[in-house]
Design a protein around this nucleic acid. Structure first.
Lengths: 230, 230
DNA sequence: GTCTATAACCTGATAGAC
DNA sequence: GTCTATCAGGTTATAGAC
């Protein structure tokens, strides 16, 4: 019985959990198209047939793998912003404070779950088509809320430019996330905190930059990109 | 003869070129693992066997697809910086000038080749393992040169922080690249130019930010990440 | 809930005719 | 240079026993 060779301790965890954990690790490293359900089931010590029973399809498993981490992280960003706004009692928040609310929760999740950076990078940068809907629903509103908060902190800034700069800042965050293991950030929380601080500084300064309203700039009607044929 | 159904005009282009062009389009959209050699050969109107003859393997074709655009773009960045430094006659360059030298060539390539953003995003963000060596060789030196130029323009800035901020800025560029089609940037060069301007502003401001030397920050020994089992 | 077996198909690479 | 045919192995998903 080659499928039973995993040790007892791993068997104590429910198979659906083990599968999800393994999926997190492998999907983060190799991407959706880079891992097969076979490799996944084998690595998790789970039968191939059981994967279908628990998650229905590879795509559903992939979505759940990402959302399990992304949902609470995103919720934490909004909570942190609400706490900060409550604490400020009507006074406008500093740009740095708002930016920290956006960035700290993802960094905390990263410290807790080593594979989260890979998930973030792969799914927010060029997300698979079947993830788009769920993703947009989850993060679209959050982005809107932060844009409003920042517009209050930077009343003289063109909203179009602000939206563009939020995208720039998102890129910086994702780059750090993607390179986190490579940067050796996993080792110490201290280093992680230092990087977070540097990132907050960088983005805040970029958001505050003087902007001679750029002529001819019009921001988009977003259009859905494709991702893979299935 | 189902393989001959493509029209005459396309046959005038050499098959190896057609294959490379098609690879550029499909790899940019779906990634290395997202496209099969069959789909690729079919779409290009090229026989499957011919692909091996011309490029040897899928990986080699992928590398060539990316490098064909990336090499000259990267070279253009260095040339632009050299021209600027020559023009300055020893006077230190403005941060904005250096940043523009880094960003404008990629934007120009994007205007010329619609699929370049996808290539950039996919290959610089979480590059496949087999591309790493070529990539590091090509861009490593360039990054070093720009770091030196920026260190001269920002003499009071901690080199560690500078290196980190270069990564942040790179993320912003890649994010824009990845979302370029989605942002509707393809339509007008004006819009493209405006976005480039906004990005230069953002990154320059971030680079200039006051940095109270962050304690405990040490930058890495880079370690090679894996990408896919083959 | 977990397993085996299998269907239907796709993968990259290659050998050898033309 | 271009074609066909094929190899050995991979893919997701499913049906049905236990």
């Amino acid at each position: 019985m080659p499928a039973k060779r995993r040790d007892q301790r791993e068997q104590e965890v429910a198979t659906s959990e083990r599968l999800l954990d393994t999926a997190e690790r492998l999907f983060a490293e190799f991407g959706f198209d880079g891992v097969g359900m076979r490799a996944l089931a084998d690595e998790a010590g789970v039968n191939l047939g059981a994967t279908t029973y628990h998650y229905g399809s590879k795509e559903k498993l992939y979505v759940e793998t990402f959302m399990r981490r992304f949902r609470p992280t995103n919720a934490a960003r909004l909570e942190m912003l609400q706490r900060a706004e409550k604490l400020a009692e009507g006074r406008p928040l500093a740009v740095e404070t708002i930016v920290e609310c956006m960035l700290r929760p993802p960094f905390m999740t990263v410290l807790k779950y080593p594979n989260f950076p890979g998930l973030l990078a792969r799914n927010l940068f060029m997300p698979p088509a079947f993830l788009r809907a769920e993703l947009e629903k989850e993060q679209g509103m959050a982005l809107q809320i932060f844009a409003v908060a920042l517009a209050k902190a930077l009343p003289q800034l063109d909203p179009q430019i602000l939206q563009l700069r939020l995208i720039f800042g998102g890129g910086s965050l994702l780059m750090v996330a993607g390179q986190m293991t490579r940067l050796g950030l996993r080792e110490s929380p201290t280093h992680c905190e230092a990087t977070l601080g540097a990132l907050i500084q960088f983005i805040s300064a970029g958001l505050r930059a003087e902007s001679p309203t750029i002529p001819g700039l019009e921001l988009p009607k977003f259009t859905a990109p494709r991702s893979r044929r299935h």
